[in-house]
Nucleic acid binder design. Sequence first.
DNA 1: CTCATAAAGTCATCTGATGACTTTATGAGT
DNA 2: ACTCATAAAGTCATCAGATGACTTTATGAG
Lengths: 225, 225
Amino acid sequence: MFSLSKTNLADTAVEAIRDEILNRRWAVGEKLPNEATLSAMLSVSRGTVREAVRVLASQGYLETRQGSGTYVLSAADSSRPLTMARRAGLRDQFEARLALDAEAARLAALRQTPAVIAGLRTLLAERGNHEDGDKAGFVIRDFAFHQAVIAASQNSVLICMYEFFSTLISETIEATLGEELPEPDMAAHAAIVDAIESGDPAAADAAVRRFMAPMLSALDRLLLS
Amino acid sequence: MFSLSKTNLADTAVEAIRDEILNRRWAVGEKLPNEATLSAMLSVSRGTVREAVRVLASQGYLETRQGSGTYVLSAADSSRPLTMARRAGLRDQFEARLALDAEAARLAALRQTPAVIAGLRTLLAERGNHEDGDKAGFVIRDFAFHQAVIAASQNSVLICMYEFFSTLISETIEATLGEELPEPDMAAHAAIVDAIESGDPAAADAAVRRFMAPMLSALDRLLLS
DNA sequence: CTCATAAAGTCATCTGATGACTTTATGAGT
DNA sequence: ACTCATAAAGTCATCAGATGACTTTATGAG
């Protein structure tokens, strides 16, 4: 976790410059000192400064203009969204999942076909029930089912969002196992598929909310105690 | 949009190496040729190769081990979700926005306070109406209002998702201006705030859906014609 | 005051060299 | 044969200096 002294100079330089940017040492649009000066400030060679600057440029913090200088492009922490989301409370994670799952179910209901419904039922059958044994495998199969619901929405942006936050979502699934959270049973899962098959978006939305409700209220009870 | 020939050598090297990684030229865990060989392969100096490798290492593709070599860490395209989402159809983008906005409105209704409601109304007043003049400024102010609704949900994951896809969302807002899409007026925006103030999550959800419905159906008409 | 031109400033790239670390080869001792 | 310390080779990390390309600023003639 810590990288005190064991990291190389270039990475140290990246950190140093990034910190200065985030601390608004230079305003957005402002020009940084030239490479020679930076190299003197950080006590590293110009080549090392260039490696650091190029990394920060590739991450959107800086922009170099040949013949002119190096400029601050943005002081926004681009990696913050994901890391912050990971640190967020479980309650927040469930609520965010609900937003994606519910909307996807709505769209899936509007666009359902017999083939897709059959695919969902197959995945549900393969998923089986959780029996303390293969926890990791169960998480994967459970996630596959939920991902298939998202895919059934045929909305590429939702699919991307789900993929982007997939590690997060796997963690919420994992959290329900082995904890005091009620793991939704087969019937609750099947209800979602049934609602999608009915073609009624509101019903599909409601099915997902009924599915998540026990977990959320159990979570509230845990947080209060 | 294209950067044919105008790009510098180091960026070209990054592209070249990244492409080879994504095309599985080297398996995950496999060692790349050493710096001297890469520099010969790409016809650039060793320093340029180092800059490229360090960028790819900072993005999680490569890992360098001093004294040993450079290894492929992952062949997964980490930027795919965002770029794919950007390429998605406008309809998909609106639907995804609806998922986040609707759920955020629900939560905001549950957690509303007079201060937050007042803040939303202030933002709405500042936003004003679109009058052909300052298009960029209007987009920023409109986005600020929608972002404030998300913030009112007090859900950090939703806030992160919104921030992550903020460029996408700005584009959907921009798309409604100057196009044949109906731009929701002040009353439609105010209705969302009113619903949140009422404290009824279902009403807040419905308000957002009513808000988006005209845009979605207009979009459908455009796509059919 | 205008504008072409020179000068200065800065990044882009190359070359060569040295140090640090890792991996592999070696060979003596058992 | 086997073990293991040691040497050798391979590789990345870093530095220093030099040249070219591009941008910005200063200059001076008209």
